[in-house]
């Protein structure tokens, strides 16, 4: 006896509950999906298409050249310097940002009066306009600016911060760290406050000291947050542009010319759209690769996931 035999089939309406709900689902995501396709995925395809062309707007040329732009990329004498600058900038930024954020979060997690005021002040640069913040630092870092003035008061001759290769890079990193470290600090603080108190009490009963508690309990439990913020921070560091443009214009020499800045110069200052597109592809590959590697690493460095 089959089910079909003992229950005569009623005619089911086309718009069943599931179908109606699915239609609602598509309607809800439609704007986002159409937007992503139009303003992200389609342009990504175009970048790749452009990168196969020699295209100079001034000379009004647009010719298919195959992999020529990629060969140019490999032969580009400036590129190693650009990649080195990008790497130094990103590495310096991430290391400094994450460790300072963690230090501040641990400080703010202490039982102290007026801690909210400190939290507010440490966070405040996040809401200051990026270019305004950079301009103030640019002003402070001038050879005759505020920082060297204050250093001179204690008898130290400061360098010309933005015109000396090493200090220019340090300046660019530090300015960006102070600007945005508050974000990671708040996320770490939330993670720290999410660690159950009983665990610390249990560890104290077991005889673990403060440092050991931090290393064996706090760090493992907040490692998912550390991973996520580090991905966001790294991807963000590769997009840095305004700070470079305002502080150093990539100089002195090309010591602070990071990839995005170089891309901007090639495409919009020298009007090499084809080669600029090739650099865009390089940027995309680097972002994707770093995200992928970090995501894979989560199995090893993240001790716990909820």
């Amino acid at each position: 006896m089959t089910i079909a035999a003992d229950t005569p089939r009623r005619k089911r309406p086309f718009w069943t509950i599931e179908r109606r709900d699915a239609a609602a689902g598509y309607a809800f995501i439609a704007p986002q999906l159409i937007g992503i396709v139009t303003f992200v995925l389609f342009p990504l395809g175009l970048v790749f298409y452009y990168s196969l062309h020699e295209w100079n707007v001034l000379a009004n040329t647009f010719n298919y050249v195959g992999a020529a732009n990629y060969q140019m990329l490999l032969a580009d004498k400036a590129l190693p310097q650009v990649l080195l600058s990008s790497a130094v900038f990103s590495a310096g930024l991430v290391v400094l940002n994450m460790s300072l954020a963690l230090l501040l979060a641990v400080l703010l997690d202490q039982k102290l009066k007026g801690i909210t005021l400190f939290r507010t002040l440490f966070f405040s640069p996040v809401v200051v306009s990026l270019v305004a913040w950079t301009i103030v630092w640019s002003f402070l870092l001038q050879n005759n600016g505020g920082i060297n003035g204050l250093l001179q008061l204690i008898g130290v001759e400061g360098p010309n911060w933005l015109r000396t290769p090493t200090t220019a890079m340090i300046s660019v990193i530090v300015v960006q760290v102070f600007k945005n470290v508050g974000l990671n600090m708040i996320l770490f603080l939330a993670a720290l406050q999410g660690v159950p108190r009983e665990l610390y009490e249990a560890a104290r009963v077991d005889g673990a000291g403060r440092f050991k508690q931090f290393r064996r309990i706090t760090l493992p439990l907040i490692s998912p947050t550390i991973l996520l913020t580090s991905i966001i921070t790294i991807v963000g560091s590769l997009q840095v542009f305004a700070q470079i443009a305002v502080l150093t214009q990539g100089g002195p020499g090309m010591t602070t010319t990071v990839l995005v800045y170089y891309l901007y110069q090639q495409a919009f200052q020298f009007h090499f759209f084809g080669y600029g597109s090739t650099l865009s592809i390089l940027l995309f590959v680097i972002v994707a690769l770093l995200t992928f590697v970090q995501w894979q690493m989560r199995k090893r460095i993240v001790f716990y996931e909820n």
């Binding site: 089910i3 229950t7 009623r10 069943t16 509950i17 599931e18």
Partner: peptide
């Protein structure tokens, strides 16, 4: 209640 769909039967 209608919160789950019916696979078979009435």
């Amino acid at each position: 209640a209608g919160l789950e769909t019916v696979t078979g039967g009435d």
